[in-house]
């Protein structure tokens, strides 16, 4: 019962996010706060590795987008596809590669 309700809520929530163009302010806050809970608010690393631009230089934007959407199976890096659109994941990949 309770699980059914939760799923329904999630389904309602996704289209709201998905229909919107990437919203930079929202996504920046997501990176800082929600990626930050594992990678550190300043992206210097925590449970997950350092995500500052210089540490990600071996990645291109497409590779990062894929990791963000699909996570890294078998590790604590979760897939964000249930919560983010491809355009949003691409925005985050660009942001990680170009912002200090």
């Amino acid at each position: 019962m309770a699980e059914g309700r939760v799923l329904a809520l999630a389904l309602v929530a996704i289209p709201l996010v998905a229909s919107a163009e990437p919203d930079p302010a929202h996504l920046e806050r997501l990176v800082i706060q929600d990626c930050g809970s594992c990678h550190g608010l300043t992206r210097k690393g925590g449970l997950g590795p350092d995500l500052r631009a210089e540490s990600l230089s071996h990645w291109d934007a497409d590779g990062l987008t894929e990791i963000i959407l699909d996570g890294i199976p078998g590790t604590a890096m979760p897939p964000w596809r249930p919560l983010l659109t491809e355009a949003e994941a691409q925005w985050i990949a660009q942001y990680l590669l170009t912002t200090e």
């Binding site: 929600d34 809970s37 594992c38 604590a76 979760p78």
Partner: peptide
């Protein structure tokens, strides 16, 4: 978890 596929964990 009784073999159920675990859901993604977005915060420990």
């Amino acid at each position: 978890g009784r073999g159920e596929e675990p859901l993604p964990v977005y915060k420990m």
